[in-house]
Design a protein around this nucleic acid. Sequence first.
RNA 1: GGCGGCGUGGCCGAGUGGUUUAGGCACGGGCCUGCAAAGCCUGUUACAGCGGUUCGAUUCCGCUCGCCGCCUCCA
Length: 452
Amino acid sequence: MKVLRLHDTAEGRVVDIEPREPGKFSMYVCGPTVYDLPHIGHGRQMLVYDVLRRYLEWTGVDVHHVSNITDVDDNIINRAAEQGRSTDDVVAQYEGEWYRASDALGVLRPHQDPHASAYIEAMVELIRELVERGVAYETSDGVYLDTSQVQGYGLLALQPLDELRAGARVDVEEEKRSPLDFVLWKKAKPGEPTWPSPWGDGRPGWHTECVVMSLDLLGEGFDLHTGGLDLRFPHHENERAQAVALGRGFSRHWMHHGFVEVASVKMSKSLGNYTTLTDLLERTEGRAYRLLVLRSHYRSPMEVVPDTIAQAEASLESLDAFARRTADLPAVEPDRATLDAFRGHIGEDLDTPAAVALLFNTVRAANAALDADDSGAAAPLAAAAKEIAGAMGLELRAQADEVDQATADLVRQRDEARAAKDFAAADRIRDELVAAGWVVEDTPAGTQVRRA
RNA sequence: GGCGGCGUGGCCGAGUGGUUUAGGCACGGGCCUGCAAAGCCUGUUACAGCGGUUCGAUUCCGCUCGCCGCCUCCA
């Protein structure tokens, strides 16, 4: 069985992924420009590719995961200027916020997170090579790539270029030979961070950093380049164009994920429905958001509103309840058929909704077996449920909450009352516990409490 | 304007030319429980609208409406 098939944007269909090197997988996840708090859409991005990576690692593949931090950019410069502080300061703050959120989601950190600022010289070198080859040209304000000279330019645009051009707005930059040409080097303007180059001081355009960094760290012909649907064109196409123009092998496959919507509308600050991931994670457990993301297919739009978050929290709770119930089951090999089905689902274009359905079906089957006192049947199912949840980065929690002495005393008193069949007292104590914010459950082992 | 995609039951969200049409959440009924909780069983039977193809369409085609994305910084 193939380990993985994915929808390749360049081909417009689901294709077999055959890595450059058997048993290895190199992926470049287009990372954030760190000038603001991450939003819930970024959270989806982090999770989608985290699931991809974890799944591959779970199957035994050696994954090399690189994700950049864009720390040289107009947005950063503007933000710093607005707030009267240095760009370094802005970058440090929001890069920190990015990883704080990422950690809270339980997302594995990339093996490398190259920063654009550390690659300026390499970018200058790449641009110089493009100029030397005659595919880039200098204007009064920068250096541009001549897209007309790039073989196959427009692959990721998914439409004829002349129609693109017809629809494109007139660029302010009149010196460009074509509206499709894009800036490789921006000549310095006052008050901006600059680096030296053969074309004078300035800074690189956005589309160059990923080319240099991905090729440097992953090498030519790396396996996968990913990002949001909006990056498909022109950003990713322009990265590709530079590699092609240099005669370098670039990414073998392209993967793009869909957007988060709020009340069926694209979220945006101007619409007032902008939700930061940072805010969300202050109110919601990272695992609940992971489950919410897993429940939809990565290429579909996904609704994130208080209601869907609450739904995810409720289903997560039922999974944790299952983990508690099955914590003492003997350790056995996970049910083989369940694992095989899981591979079939995730391996086919990362079908996490099917995998989640499988998870819940497996949980139900195990619960039913336990209800029938058949722990022999339940154990492998429970093991499989935990295994596949874990493979998607969802650790089920059997851990009880810390119980203070006063609460422990109440629990003991309630058990004594129940043993004495003094149900009035038992109920009174339960009410007390509930009022104190505990969920009370009776189990064969006596009263169990956990935080509501 | 061009191109790509979406519109599924109370709410999310898969999927499929017809026979048993995921899964979750919510709600109702039953079992279990001293009562609950958890769990199990079970019910609500949907595919935007209008046409067309077909023996048969939610699934294929066309149009309409609504929404999203790209063409301009963007996950």
